[in-house]
Design a protein around this nucleic acid. Sequence first.
DNA 1: TCATAGATGTTATAACACTACATGTTTCGA
DNA 2: TCGAAACATGTAGTGTTATAACATCTATGA
Lengths: 167, 167
Amino acid sequence: MVHTPSLQHHLPGETARFQASPASGTGKILADTEALCRAKGVRLTPIRRRVLEVLLGAAKPLGAYDLADALVSQGRRMAPITVYRALDFLIEHGLAHRLASRNAYIASTSGHGVPAFLICEDCGEATEITCTDVAETVRRVLTAQGYQPLARALEITGQCPHCQDVH
Amino acid sequence: MVHTPSLQHHLPGETARFQASPASGTGKILADTEALCRAKGVRLTPIRRRVLEVLLGAAKPLGAYDLADALVSQGRRMAPITVYRALDFLIEHGLAHRLASRNAYIASTSGHGVPAFLICEDCGEATEITCTDVAETVRRVLTAQGYQPLARALEITGQCPHCQDVH
DNA sequence: TCATAGATGTTATAACACTACATGTTTCGA
DNA sequence: TCGAAACATGTAGTGTTATAACATCTATGA
Ligand SMILES: [Zn+2]
Ligand SMILES: [Zn+2]
Ligand SMILES: [Zn+2]
Ligand SMILES: [Zn+2]
């Protein structure tokens, strides 16, 4: 049996060093995003907004086809390609990330810097962290090997606190 | 245009802190692996051996279907499921890893500890490193958030030295 | 208003991964 | 040595994730 994550499972401030995502409401985040997109001169269209909204409301990362199912309009579910196009937009502007290890997508609540995600292997729950240590270590290892660092979400796998309690 | 990685591109000893993979020949690695499997009481069958051999000889991580194409036997290419089964075995015993960010598989040359891979976004080349810093940082972040660390390859994305030279 | 760029609709297909079940092969104890 | 059991592979089909190609619609600004 596996822990089923619920909304806002992980509140911020668990430690001083590792900032968890701010637990501001979805509404505020959406409003901020609207403003951000206007400022950038890009269009947060209704489709893109709805995809982001579903991601923000989800308890864990969602697959593209999960999103398609969730976004029913006039009795018809959204076409996969439409979801992928919306995701491309959101990812390009740092509003969402793809978690390759799970073929899933998650809204980004930090919005700046190189994020990292702690992902539970059992229940799939993901916690976004913006940790200076991690970013710095990754950057140093890359440059030491002659690699040029690129901003890309880091996926760190483990077992979440709730799933450890399940015997 | 993009750099096409060739065999043994990255030789060891680039820095003292970060051990690159040993550049021992494929033959020796295979012989060692044979011995290791005998010792463990598991069977490195011809199919599994050939899959490992192709991975070891590849310049970069290969997809399961690439492997199927490479492993033609009596005019017929290997069935995908056969490749996946061989990969399952190799991964289970630490002889290979799956790189989720590229849907590709790579032979592991370290064989112990939690490995990390530097992956070039342009050419797909991957360099295995066994870096104490990275492992330690990851472990610390996980435990700080209450996560139980699990041995899983870490994928770090950047641009490889060769691809930086291409103008 | 009209040209243009950007966004979406529609259909089809590519790419990746696995299920289910039959058959073959090795191993080991009776 | 025989046969059961475990392990490995063959074969066919399907599930899942992601994209190509092209048509149509919509917002925007000259
Ligand atoms: Zn969990
Ligand atoms: Zn949890
Ligand atoms: Zn490269
Ligand atoms: Zn290279």
